[in-house]
Design a protein around this nucleic acid. Structure first.
Lengths: 217, 217
DNA sequence: TTAATAATTAAACATTCGTTTAAATTTGCG
DNA sequence: CGCAAATTTAAACGAATGTTTAATTATTAA
């Protein structure tokens, strides 16, 4: 008697969500009109208010829909006590990088929302804060485990480490066309570029965190 | 017969520029109306078109005014051959961090513009690209010097290193209120928080780059 | 002082914005 | 089928947008 985990949004609503997601990502929330969203989704203008209530609520629906994907996915790896701490960190890093490339539109929206003054959309700010707390707790747990096993250094400032972690990933997300230009990679298609960047980023971040966390070379 | 380096903008124009800068930073370009800017600057609405031509041109004027501050300032340190490479890197990092905190509004605007699709405002995208290229060349020079002197590792991917550098700094700029919340620092004033963050960030980044660049512990 | 130029203003401009309406169509169900 | 609810539509809403206008005031220089 299997019950699907309730789709919550119909196909048409998902069309709107993903159209809005694409547009918000590239032009920003205020830079995108409801009419553009309707056109991109192939849907009548009024359907957006009809289904979501308002443009603002639509943005919140996007967060509602996407940020769940965040929670569940990470926590799985962590609780296996057999895997050694550094490997766990590596797994986590890979997951973070993959998630970022797979959901790049949503990530760009999230980055934008973080720049906004905290009173812009408090509902969304709360969601982001919750997600950050959760991830930080997770990371803290892995790090402490590694420290207790004597594999990781003491005195690691986890908040700052997270700044570098998400900072690096976000910077890659937001500035990839600059990267492409500076490194003379204009001949690559977007997909080719992304594949290359993902591979490089995975390695880079692992090297980085090995250096931060351990004493080995 | 000393000539001032021509102010280019009158006092009133600078009022408008810095008012717009503040608003664009916290609400975004599209999220800020010309009327808001006029009010924040204590100036009649029409003055903005009168002086700058349009809202878009005003944004470009902000870049014109601020990005110069970028060029000149960094290059000074680098050409002293007596200073050892790691110290040069440290000096550069300190300058970058300071610059970011001193001009935090403009930096937030720059970060936003980088997220936008490249065809949003091509003039500004060009300016950012130029600035990035310039900084990267500078960094490359210092790193290579350190590599030739045998102080730094070989095989350093400078582009990725820059991702981590600016990623970390930008992440700090954009998420400091989340940092404040997560670390229970709500009792601090904005200035107290900033002072603390600046100090921490300076140390963090130096530690980070020592680990990336050298083999010491 | 006076005439020309610059700065400033309030008002109006045409567009676009997000949202609502009311009618038309489709769907689900007895 | 036939009716009620849900969906879809084109049109309209008022408010807000960026920009311009034309009249007024302030400044400059001869």
């Amino acid at each position: 008697m299997e019950e699907k985990p309730l789709p919550a949004y119909t196909e048409k609503q998902q069309q709107i969500i993903s159209a809005a997601e694409r547009l918000f990502a590239s032009k920003g929330f205020d830079g995108t009109s409801v009419r553009e969203i309707a056109q991109e989704a192939g849907v009548n203008l009024a359907m957006i208010s009809y289904y979501f209530g308002s443009k603002e609520k639509l943005l919140e629906a996007i967060f509602d829909e996407r940020i769940i994907y965040f929670r569940t996915e990470l926590e799985s790896v962590i609780n296996d006590p057999k895997i050694e701490p550094l490997k766990k960190v590596y797994q986590l890093l890979d997951k973070l990088v993959d998630r970022n490339f797979e959901r790049s539109c949503f990530h760009r929206i999230m980055i934008r929302e973080q720049i906004d003054s905290p009173n812009k959309n408090e509902f969304i700010q709360k969601m982001i804060l919750e997600s950050k707390k959760r991830t930080q707790e997770l990371v803290k747990k892995i790090i402490h485990e590694g420290q207790e096993k004597g594999v990781f250094k003491k005195n690691i400032d986890i908040s700052l480490m997270m700044m570098t972690l998400f900072g690096t990933i976000n910077q890659m997300t937001t500035t990839q066309h600059f990267y492409q230009e500076i490194n003379g990679l204009q001949h690559l298609t977007t997909e080719e570029l992304q594949t290359r960047l993902k591979k490089k980023l995975r390695i880079h971040i692992k090297t980085l965190f090995k250096a931060i966390l351990t004493n080995e070379n």
